[in-house]
Structure formats: C-alpha cells, structure tokens
C-alpha cells in the first residue's frame, strides 16, 4: 500500500484553503468526470483519485486526521480502533452521497480504506439516489463464432447472465446490458454492463465490413485451360468455375457468401476469392520437354 499525497493529487499546497481545494477539485472533476470521458479508463482512474483526495481534504476533520496521520497510516488504523472503543468514531462506510453514476467513485484506494475505514462517510451536498457504476468487459470471439447468432453465459459479480450475440457483430462493437452493472447507491438503479466484442483474426478469412476475403489455390492447368475448383467458404464448400486464362490474383465475387449483416436477418455481405495460381515445381524430364516445346510455340 502506498502513501497517497492528496495535496499533490489536487495540485494544491499544504496550506491551501478549503476554497482553494474546492476550486481545484471542481476543475479536475470537470476534466476527468467519466461522463465527459467515455471509454477512457485512464480518466476514470484519475477521477477516482481526485474524488478520494477531495473526500479527505474538503472535510476539516478528515483533513486534520490525514495531516496528522497521513504519512503513518498504519498508526492511524490503531488510532481509529482506539477511537472506536471510545465511541467517538464519526466515519462509517456506505453512507456516501456524492456518488457519480458512471466510472466508479466507489473504489477507494487501500490507503484511504486503511485511514478512514471504508469509502463513503462524507458531509456532502445532497442525499441523492444514484445509479451504480457501469462495468466494462471484453468478450473475445473467433470470427467463426461471430458468424452465427449464439448464446453465451457470462459471469458478472458471481451471477450468470445469458446473452445472445447477434451474428455479424463488429470487432470493437459495444453492447449495453441494462442493470447489470454495480448496484445503485441510496436505492438508485443499478449501473449497466458494457461489453466490447473483440473479434480475433481468422487464418483463412479476412473481414472487411460485411465482406469476406479468402485465397484459393488454382493449379496452373486449370488457370490456363479453365475448369472447376472447390473453394471453402465460411459456411461450407463451394464449387466454382475457373475461366480459361485466369491470372494470378484474379478476384472473383460470390454474392451473399460473406458475413451476415448485423441485426438484419438473411442479409449477407459478399465473399471475394483471390486466385493464387500454383506453378508446378520439381518437373520431370518429360514435363520439362513439353514446357520447352510449348514455350517455343509462343
């Protein structure tokens, strides 16, 4: 556990007045408040720090205790115990009012907990019901998993949540599960759970929007003379006609064989197949003779 210099966190001098502290806190809160910093974990963390600093320094009694015992928090704990025994303890956990909905002010540092015994006790502005903190989670999916609508069970705070992941979900896409975040404060509603989908790369298929791209090997003779080849799509095998004279890297489009369009059932992107022509190596004597003969015809 590290000693936290709350004065430094708020950027004020040790001799700062209550007003200076309030001003410094307000300024930093406007900058780092989770509502104005969506999806910014760093800002959320910083916001917790400044809240904690404000919690301590804006209250005369808290500040006195911090100034007195701050650097020696372990002794402060003993001090607290002694105070408790004398029935003079004024701080108790869980009574916090100024609870910001998103971004979690609820988590105070270990340092704070050891010094003030649990988060919360504060002589604040208004006793408001606030919705709980939002949770952020990542869910990794294979490309093939994102191809079909499927259900998955997640465990959040020891509770199982069954979610349906619609086919065609994008990499980095976020969904919100209402009410599955942290419990509300003072009877406020629960926060939400945000899940970001991370779609892993697939070896065979590359995805661009709703379209898929894949390479298919074609032997030299089929490329020259034309013929048929079997290509693996994400939903099964497909027989394709290869026109005579197909060049390397020729791109052919198969309509509707790409990725499903998110929340549009039955709609699919396209599949692009890039032909890679395989030139035979290790030719036999006879083959070499024939190729030489062919080359002379040109």
């Amino acid at each position: 556990m590290e000693y936290v210099d709350y004065y430094k966190v708020l950027g004020v001098d040790k001799s700062a007045s209550t007003d200076d502290i309030k001003k410094a806190y307000r300024k930093l809160a406007r900058k780092y408040h989770p509502d104005v910093n969506p999806n910014n974990k760093e800002a959320h963390k910083k916001f917790q720090e400044i809240n904690e600093a404000n919690e301590v320094l804006s209250d005369a009694e808290n500040r006195k205790k911090y100034d007195q015992y701050g650097k020696d928090w372990k002794h402060a704990e003993e001090f607290e115990k002694a105070r408790q025994q004398h029935g003079q303890r004024t701080y108790s956990g869980g009574g916090g009012e100024e609870y910001f909905g998103e971004g979690g002010q609820g988590d105070f540092s270990d340092f704070f907990e050891s010094l003030f015994g649990g988060s919360g006790g504060r002589s604040g502005r208004r006793e408001t019901k606030f919705r709980g903190q939002d949770y952020q989670a990542e869910l990794h999916l294979k490309l093939r998993e994102a191809y079909t609508t499927h259900q998955q069970t997640l465990t959040v705070d020891g509770k199982n949540i069954r979610i349906t992941i619609p086919a065609g979900v994008e990499n980095g896409q976020k969904i919100r599960l209402k009410g599955h975040g942290a419990p509300g404060v003072n009877g406020g509603p629960n926060g939400d759970l945000y899940i970001t989908f991370i779609i892993e790369d697939d070896l065979r298929f590359k995805r661009l929007g709703n379209d898929l791209y894949t390479n298919a090997e074609v032997d030299l003779y089929t490329a020259i003379l034309g013929g048929e080849t079997t290509v693996e799509t994400i939903s099964g095998k497909l027989k394709l006609k290869v026109p005579a004279g197909t060049q390397n890297d020729t791109k052919t489009r198969v309509k509707g064989k790409g990725f499903p369009v998110y929340k549009k059932e039955g709609e699919f992107g396209d599949l692009y197949i890039i032909y890679k022509i395989k030139v035979p190596t290790q030719l036999s004597e006879r083959e070499r003779e024939l190729f030489t003969e062919l080359s002379k015809l040109r």
């Binding site: 809160a29 502005r125 919705r131």
Partner: peptide
C-alpha cells in the same frame, strides 16, 4: 433516461 441522468450529473456534480 440515461441521457437525463447524465445531464443531472453534469449539472449537479460539475455545476455545468
């Protein structure tokens, strides 16, 4: 509601 709650936080917590 979400937006409204956000507005309340901006107004009462940040004095906007």
């Amino acid at each position: 509601l979400n937006e409204l709650e956000k507005i309340i936080r901006l107004h009462y917590d940040l004095n906007v």
